[in-house]
Computed example of a mutant assay.
Amino acid sequence: MAQQQYSEKDPTIELFIKAGHDGENVGNCPFCQRLFMVLWLKGVKFTVTTVDMRKKPEELKDLAPGTNPPFLLYNGVLKTDFIKIEEFLETTLAPPNYPHLSPLNKESFDVGADIFAKFSAFIKKSPNNSLQERALLREFKRLDDYLNTPLPQEIDHNSTENITVSTRKFLDGNSLTLADCNLLPKLHVIKVAAKKYCDFDIPTQFTGVWRYLNNAYAREEFSQTCPANIEIEKAYESVVRQRK
């Protein structure tokens, strides 16, 4: 019985993520970073192994044949598909031992849903990408509007003070949630790759977006799980070559 309690409280978790161009450091994979952030925010003990996709070790081929990172071993049981892994972790690593990370507002998940697709179209068409740039900027404007609009929980209906602009740190409040674990890795890729290959900066007029990013980079759960800029730049070299 004591062993079972220990197992429930301290599961053995191994996260496998994509390695960078050197075969060792963290590579460019927003989905890998998403799960890395989730586990860190849960406050659970876990190990991280980077997988060199050019020469996948034999033991990993046996462990997860035909599976690309991210994947997970939870108490020795293989978990694949990052969406299902995230759902499993949120359900299994639950209060009172671990925090819930689901956002209160569904819109916090929805608001950034199209931004990465618009970025992908934008970088593929550069430099003749004015239409794609406008589409990308519309998504940033949508995100900025959401971040600057007070959420229902920010409004005190008993107060005489009228809050017109939100000051919250993240998508769903002042705590990082699953919505942030989904969006922030993508925003980091956009910020780095668009600057490198399109000379595009997120406009400073999007004050909500920049408040959000600055608050996120101040959190080690995000900043310490980001791939190095060179990993993102190398990942998009092939895209740049194909557009010429």
Rank of each mutant, 00 (worst) to 15 (best):
L89C: 09
G20N: 02
A135G: 11
N174S: 09
I123P: 00
A135E: 14
V189A: 06
P152S: 05
Y212L: 08
N25W: 07
F82Q: 06
G27K: 02
Y217K: 11
W40N: 10
C198E: 03
F222L: 08
G66R: 03
L35I: 14
P185I: 02
V189E: 07
N229W: 11
W210S: 07
N162D: 06
T167W: 01
D201V: 10
P96K: 04
G27S: 04
Q153K: 12
L101C: 09
F140M: 04
K244L: 08
L39P: 03
K234D: 12
Y212F: 15
D81L: 03
Y98Q: 11
F116K: 01
R168M: 03
S166E: 06
Q205T: 15
E133F: 08
T207G: 07
L137C: 08
K141F: 14
L63I: 01
S166T: 03
T160D: 06
I123Q: 00
L184F: 11
K169A: 13
K84M: 06
H100E: 15
P103I: 01
F116L: 01
N97S: 15
T80F: 00
I115D: 00
E220N: 14
L171W: 03
F116E: 00
K244S: 11
K106N: 09
Y236T: 04
L93Q: 04
E233Y: 07
A135V: 14
T92M: 11
V51Q: 04
A218P: 04
P150T: 03
Y6D: 13
F200W: 05
T47C: 10
M53A: 11
C32W: 01
Q3M: 12
S120R: 11
G23V: 03
Q3A: 11
R168H: 02
S126G: 06
E24D: 07
I83F: 14
V26G: 12
